[in-house]
Simulated scan of single mutants.
Amino acid sequence: MAALTPKVVAPAATAAGAGAATGPLRGTHPAVRIAGTLGQRVLMLVVLLAVVFSAIELLPGDAASASAERGESTADLAERRHLLGLDRPVWERFISWMTALPTGDLGTSARGQKVTELLADPLPNTLVLALSAFVITVVLSLLLGCWAAARPGRLTDRTISHATTAAFAVPEFVVSALLLALSLWTGWLPAVTVTGGDGRPATWTMLIMPVLALVIPQTGWNTRVVRGALADQASSPHVEAAHLDGLPLRRILMSHQLPGAVPAIATGIATSTGLLFSGAVVVETLFNYPGIGTVLAGAVAARDTPLIAGVVICAGAVVSLVLLAADLIRHATPGVRA
């Protein structure tokens, strides 16, 4: 466990991630660096989509056989494969899907419905879930990280360090299962989500358990990032000078350490966005939440490649925008060079 202390791992991990993203563009104009970073994000997303198409192709069965009804003949399956385009090479289907993407066409699912229509309701639900968890995670991480940094080496610092390490070490499905059991035992909050006529949770209280299941692990990680970034800044010359001048510790923390730690903190928080979306797949399934996680689970079972790719591109676009925002913060922070 000692190897996971925030003072060592968190700053190093975030700095490495930031450097890897923009290292080759160092020394160029900020606009060029940002454009280059955006190009890298887009390229990575295209590669990810190619991997998705290839991975689904390697799974046993296909969308035609997964949606087949009892008693269908081989000829019927062959006809369905032709209608779904499954008799074409996977690379050809991928290029066809990608060329239609700029027009907003995400293809047609194995059930014959437009992917955009299938995601019209679940995607906003997931965005509400992820955004709520993201905001709460940021606030808690900053509060806990600053609280621990204001008392370095003391009981508060050690307690927060151990607690957040344990929180991050527990997977989302374990946290979800514990919260689900707690909800069923106490009856204080809804254990499962019931949707209304508009396809959204019937009451806002049904968001609490799924949000907590995402917040707890991510707060553990990001608190370590905040604490580690502030610890790095504590040894900076201007911070040491502030101590020699006799400034209050709180003022040193907020006015001298925190501004310099913003780039590392922004990068760590932005990175956790992807983990929020990946965790949402498990959390939404366990709590019966009507989001893209539930759609994705069903799409994988049905070998529905266009629907899976649609979920991936939507989630990837959101994560890429958050990462781009983190890059902009790093470039805009005085004294910081990417």
Rank of each mutant, 00 (worst) to 15 (best):
L58N: 13
R41V: 12
S65P: 06
I56Y: 11
I56E: 13
P30S: 05
H82V: 15
R33A: 13
L106I: 04
D87L: 01
G71S: 02
T103K: 15
V47F: 06
L77Y: 10
H29I: 09
M98F: 12
L84P: 01
G107K: 02
Q40S: 12
H29N: 15
V52L: 02
L25F: 06
V51P: 05
V46D: 11
W97V: 00
E92D: 14
F94V: 00
E72L: 09
W91K: 09
G27N: 07
D105V: 00
W91Y: 09
D62Q: 05
T28M: 07
V42N: 05
R80K: 08
L38Y: 13
T108E: 03
R88F: 03
R41S: 15
D76E: 12
M98V: 01
D62V: 02
T99W: 13
P30L: 10
T108D: 01
R41I: 12
L58P: 06
L83S: 12
V42M: 09
A50C: 07
L77G: 06
A35G: 08
R81M: 15
R88D: 05
V46E: 09
F53N: 03
I95D: 14
V90K: 14
E69L: 11
A78Q: 13
R93W: 06
A75E: 15
P24H: 01
E69A: 12
E79L: 12
I56M: 12
W91T: 11
E72M: 11
R81Y: 07
G23F: 15
V46Y: 13
V51K: 01
G23V: 11
I95Q: 14
D87I: 03
G71M: 06
V32S: 09
V51F: 11
G112H: 04
V51W: 11
A78M: 10
R88C: 01
G61Y: 08
G36K: 05
L86G: 00
D87G: 00
D87A: 00
A64W: 01
V32K: 14
L77V: 04
L38N: 10
L49Y: 03
